[in-house]
Amino acid sequence: MTRKKEKTVQENIRRKRVERIIHGIFLMLGLITVGCVLLITIYLVISGIPAMRTIGLKEFLFGQKWASTAAEPKFGILPFILTSIYGTAGAIVLGVPVGFFAAVYIAKIAKGKIKWLLQSAVGMLAGVPSVVYGLVGMMVLVPGIRKLFKVPDGASLLASIIVLAIMILPSIIKVSVTALESVPPEYEEASLAMGATPIETYFRVSVPSARSGIAAAVVLGVGRAIGEAMAVMMVAGNAPNMPTLFESVRFLTTAVASEMSYSSGLQRQALFSIALVLYFFIMLINAALNFFLKRGNVKQS
């Protein structure tokens, strides 16, 4: 009898141990995302700092000339930073209005088949690989800009802005639609009962109460635009100029991508520093995004 009891006690201890081990394994799996973020941050900081030190932070961030392979190399990334900022701003200026109005239409007005059609169109836009955007931009936009504006080469900031605006459209629309659809119907009903027409209600009641979600959509678009590399690489021309609308430009992302494969020494380290600057921008944008998402209580999808 006692032996049997002892056995069950031992069995219980064994079971508990197994449970604890499995709990540990799942904990590790759970922490894996945290590990990845740390890994990325640490690698970027460690490999990005040395070049900034060697070149000098001020000269690196505010130097206007990038000539990494010249006999007397210059590593100023101000052109890239400004191009990234102008390019993103341009994409937002073009993309947000279209995305916003399309989102209101999808969320509030479109019904049945038309709504389904529009939502599938947005889903499909989101699924197009960025190289395909790049290819279409290269074959349609670049020659188009060259002919339309009579410039020597259409591969320019303008072409990148248009491509980026198209690429951020689906994220803006999706998040805005979610935000608009989660506006409590009572708000709208109250407005309608006061004699406002549906359209006035959507723009004066629904939109203001979904403003956090819409702000999150815009910030998400900013993040997408600033981080896009391949499509932009195919249409921007990649010359390290200070940004002007019709000249070939280089973004932070494309600066890394275009020289990485043949870089070495200080040039390679400088590329990592560029990535670190980009990462810094992305972290700022993420923080803003989280702020708006929390306030608007919308899930990013």
């Binding site: 995302t33 945290v34 990845c36 973020v37 600033i226 981080g227 890394v256 990485m260 980009l278």
Partner: peptide, 25 residues
């Protein structure tokens, strides 16, 4: 909260940075 924040951060990082860190690591 920490894990979910990390996951959100991961989904915001551009792919070129993944490529770079993937290459290093």
């Amino acid at each position: 909260a920490v894990i979910e924040y990390a996951a959100e951060t991961l989904s915001g990082i551009p792919s070129i940075i993944y490529g770079l860190v993937g290459m290093l690591f």
